[in-house]
């Protein structure tokens, strides 16, 4: 039975936004933890660590996010670990985010002047203290803008989780469209909601970038 696209349908889509936000937020946190580990491994003095993590990053940068989702979702099933769409989407997005954030943050760590690490080393600070007190606080300032930029990519990327059946913004749009057959209206609304999530973040990223560019120029 076809029904018109009305306020209830709109509300149905709007409430699904919480799952998009939850998925993005958790994947961002998971990816952040993994990304920090990868960034540290990529800048480590141990060659093996650098090689392994470089391979990991290349792998995720060189394959589509959709394939990563498929591989985690269907792969886990093959190995007798049936994951539901929630866990599979979270896992795949976290791994994806860890590779990208790892690469972004590696660049930020390496952008800190080498003299900083030398001075901290000469003061007999060990690796942990050098990172914690000297290098990472400075890298973090450089990292804020590109990190927020990546968060925008990640939010948009969560739409792919609809394909493995995870009920988020895009999936709710598909469901409403199947009932109303008004794809332009439905997906127009869905797109607008994504836009209203991402646009403020993009603005924030640009402002932060300008802010830090100005403060480092001083």
């Amino acid at each position: 039975m076809i029904r018109p696209f009305g306020f209830n349908e709109f509300l149905f889509i709007l409430t699904a936004v919480q799952w998009t936000i939850a998925l993005s937020a958790i994947a961002f946190c998971g990816g952040g933890l993994g990304g920090l580990a990868i960034a540290l491994a990529r800048t480590s003095s141990l060659k093996l660590l650098r090689l392994v993590t470089t391979g990991y990053i290349r792998l995720f940068q060189g394959t589509p996010l959709l394939m990563q989702l498929f591989l985690v979702y269907f792969g886990a099933n093959i190995f007798g670990l049936p994951l539901n769409a929630w866990i599979a989407a979270l896992l795949a997005l976290s791994l994806h985010a860890s590779a990208f954030l790892g690469e972004i943050w590696r660049g930020c760590i390496q952008a800190v002047a080498p003299g900083q690490n030398e001075a901290a080393t000469a003061l007999a600070l060990n690796y942990r203290d050098r990172m914690r007190y000297v290098i990472l606080p400075q890298a973090a300032r450089i990292a804020v803008a590109p990190t927020v930029g990546f968060l925008v990519q990640l939010i948009k990327g969560t739409s792919l989780a609809s394909i493995i059946g995870f009920m988020e913004l895009t999936r709710s749009g598909q469901i409403i469209n199947n009932a109303t057959f008004e794809p332009f209206k439905v997906f127009g609304v869905v797109a607008l909601i994504y836009f209203s999530l991402c646009w403020p973040l993009s603005l924030l990223a640009r402002r932060l970038e300008r802010h830090f560019a100005r403060s480092t120029a001083k």
């Binding site: 003299g115 030398e118 001075a119 000469a122 007999a124 600070l125 400075q138």
Partner: peptide, 25 residues
């Protein structure tokens, strides 16, 4: 050691620069 480019930690005050290593090390 004292370096050509000073290499002070820019995100810390002068006092924090001077106390970090004695406290941590």
């Amino acid at each position: 050691m004292v370096f050509q480019q000073f290499n002070l930690f820019p995100h810390m005050t002068v006092l924090e620069n001077c106390t970090l290593a004695p406290r941590r090390v």
